[in-house]
Design a protein around this nucleic acid. Structure first.
Lengths: 343, 343
DNA sequence: CTGAAAGCGCTTACAG
DNA sequence: CTGAAAGCGCTTACAG
């Protein structure tokens, strides 16, 4: 047995098992390179002594942390949680763990996040935040190398980082086509922040679909939001200011849509009677809202799983720099109760 | 300048600044122990060379990781996000960072989580999951020491871990008293999982308040949930099965309440006309739900901040084992639209 | 206030 | 299949 209060280290296990520290190390990391008998003895000794590897020592020596940084714009948005589940389970299967960084919090500054990750904390990055790419690239040139990065959901136009995302243009088209099919001719948009790639893609998809339907969209029918409930509320107030109002609204995401519907209701306007509303994401609560939200569903679990898989491949083939193409997954329109024919 | 592709290390900075590695190290960790002039030279050299500390090396040598493990039962529940913000900002001020562990995912097994954290990954733990305490304690005895742990929101009855939480009994009392004041005499409960400390506290608080009001609660008026939207839906179906129904329901949390209301509505029963409903937590969407949810508000940011502060104190005073008492914060009843007089 | 030197606990070519 | 030995990049008493 160990003395009281002393954490066993690899040399203690080695002594107990009657082998060298090298053999203990191999048994733990590459068991297949060790004879069955030796392996059993080592594992027994490790268990008996309550040995736990010191990851700092391992990382220092092996130059690998076994950790992937996951950059999330807003942990408060439930949209991300299933993506994270997909990421986590896929990485766990390879013995990798997740360092979650909320890019909103974490002292907020991109440089801070970058410095933080560059302190040899992670082997690679999964970013759900497209705005961080330029900074990452810059750092990659300033220091020795660039952390392998894969974008999930969001992406960045510059640079050639691999990414997995959804067909946002298709999503917008499905939403607009649905409203058009219902007979709406005056369709407004609650856009996301205009510096966000998702917002831009969804906006241009929507404008294209509106044009294709031979409809016009008045400039005053477009409102800016920041994906939050509160900005949906603000959009409702702006909307009601108008004399000539659209009869249907396509929103940047579900939270905006819910804020919008809620405020319209408080101001005496009802959905879908007075306005039809379509969201985007299909967050868990969408189907439980009253009225239940018509929205665009994304394969969230899959986005996370595939993103993680792409990063794993990059980490394992450091040599081959074959740029992985951007993968694009289809979305689905989920028709519920917030859309109807115009009054 | 460095050669291409080589990460600068402390010895490079030392050479560039014309000092020893010890001085560089001190400048970075304890600047006040270094002469102004030296400090400036070192910082300049560090900046010029693009030096980034290798945290594995630092941790290995200093036996501190600078990381706090935060155990969250369910990242998908928005209730946690503001608590996490409070935790993160408080820890960041002390140069500590957060390793977030979703105790639902992360291969789910408590032993796995424990082993994971014990691999010298963290200096201490903030647990929002009360169920993990026994396991942590056990491990503390098996290995050299116990990771300093503070419980936030949830806690564990055994053991004497410091904790910061809300007065759940008071919350229940406020909810029940409100329903009683409205004239309800038949009050039902959608309880959380009965092995959860929060559920137990809220349940016993509710039962006490019902008793104090000289009311009876029929056994059939109690339903079990798991804090999820879906379990609220199931509770609604069970409720409607009854001949003799309560006229008001107090729910374990807001998600359950929303699931309940949504399903009642689909079955043709309206809130608050047919049933009054009170939630718990005041998640962001509560005020935007239709009808807006009457619920119990918790000081979430504060819970996170104080919890982090308590852990910081434990980490800084390793010697003094003065057990910090459990701190309890008050809650507030937020009356919105889901409660009314019985029909 | 600063430097020389030891050592944190591992992994990994290398040799056998 | 296994072991001896070097070394990853830091920090920290210790001495001056």
């Amino acid at each position: 047995m160990m003395e009281e209060g002393r954490t066993p280290k690899i040399v203690d296990v080695a002594r107990l098992a009657g082998v060298s520290t090298a053999t203990v190390s191999r048994t733990l990391s590459k068991p297949e390179t060790v004879a069955q008998k030796t392996r059993d003895a080592v594992l027994k000794a490790a268990k008996e002594s309550g040995y736990r590897v010191n990851l700092s020592a391992r990382s220092l020596r092996s130059r690998r942390t076994g950790v992937v940084g996951v950059l999330v714009p807003n942990l408060g948005n439930t949209f991300f949680s299933r993506i994270l589940a997909g990421i986590e389970s896929t990485l766990a299967r390879k013995g990798l763990s997740v360092l979650m960084v909320d890019t909103m919090h974490q002292t907020t500054k991109p440089e801070f996040i970058l410095d933080y990750l560059n302190d040899s904390r992670v082997d690679g990055i999964l970013s759900l935040d497209g705005s961080l790419s330029p900074t990452l690239l810059q750092a990659g040139q300033a220091t020795a190398g660039l952390l392998p990065t894969v974008f999930v959901c969001e992406w960045h136009d510059q640079g050639n980082h691999p990414s997995i995302r959804v067909d946002n243009l298709q999503g917008s088209a499905l939403a607009i086509d649905h409203l058009v099919a219902l007979g709406h001719t005056k369709i407004g948009l609650i856009n996301g922040p205009l510096d966000n790639v998702l917002s831009k893609a969804r906006l241009s998809g929507a404008l294209a679909a509106i044009k294709k339907a031979n409809l016009k969209i008045d400039d005053s029918w477009q409102f800016e939001s920041d994906f939050s409930l509160q900005s949906g509320v603000a959009a409702a107030d702006s909307l009601l200011t108008l004399q000539d109002r659209p009869t249907a609204l396509f929103c940047a995401n579900d939270e905006t849509a819910i804020g919008l519907i809620s405020q319209l209701h408080r101001r005496g306007f009802y959905v879908p009677k007075d306005f039809s509303v379509v969201g985007f994401d299909d967050i868990d609560i969408a189907r439980h809202y009253l009225p239940a939200l018509t929205t665009i569903w994304q394969p969230r679990m899959e986005l996370g799983e595939i993103g993680a898989q792409m990063l794993i491949e990059r980490l394992e083939n450091k040599a081959s720099h074959t740029p992985q193409p951007a993968k694009v997954l289809p979305v689905e329109l989920i028709i519920r109760e917030t859309t109807a024919k115009p009054a």
